[in-house]
Amino acid sequence: MRRAPAALALALLLLSGCASHPAPPQDDAMEVAISAGRQAMDNHQPAQAIPRFEDANRRALLRDDAPALADIGYDLAAARLADNHPDAALSELARTRAALSLRGHPAPPALDLVAAAALDRLARLPEARIAATRAATSPDPAIAARALFLSGLIADHAGDRTGVIDASTRLDHLAPAKALPRWRQADRLELAARAALASGHPDTALATIRQAIDLRRDDTDYPALRRGLRLAAAAAGALGQTSMAAAYEAQATQSLDAAK
């Protein structure tokens, strides 16, 4: 029993000795707002995330913090896009670019990623393709990978088979598959399935997209899951399995109804 206090004191000494370096100075209110916004986005509540990111944006303007403005502008635009307001997302991006230009700070390619997604939703495909190409130059591999995935998706929407296959090939060569998070694996599989369908291999496309659907489910990305189900329906239709195609379509519709 006498040894217990001594052991505790030793442990505390070790812990204090092993204390990490202090974190860089930051605005607590801004950090809290960003954290709350991110948590709302993780819980698929973009409408709740928007006011938090707006608070954070005000704090960033208050402290004249250009890098924070770039990051929060990206977050806010992504939240507005997730809230199904692509026009508002584009306006937010324009505001962010103007604020960065005022401060002589370059606009990060991440802004182009959100712009590409918003323009794709607005069916402004040529502009979306340009934005996705710019976003693919990002030094952040996650941004670049998502930009390539968007490029392939935009090419598919435009009926450009070569573009889909090219984007899929480039995405495959970006990084080894094993080390990737689920969403990136799912992106690769979905784009590969689209490329297979575009190349006239619906059976391969169906098998690949099924894997992607499972990953989307695990990742709780249900809009992407519905997109995968519709692709599976298209692949089954191309195989002549009309009942299977109808079943996939019905599953996608039920998922959409449940989301409302």
């Binding site: 092993c18 990490s20 950090e31 977050d75 997604a117």
Partner: peptide, 26 residues
């Protein structure tokens, strides 16, 4: 998380302000 006793690297990473690109959905 940064403590090596708990498997950390020692120096805490700076706070990441950006949400995941996975949430930028087409």
């Amino acid at each position: 998380r940064g403590l090596w006793l708990l498997g950390g690297g020692g120096t805490p990473k700076p706070a990441d302000h950006r949400i995941s690109p996975a949430q930028v959905a087409p």
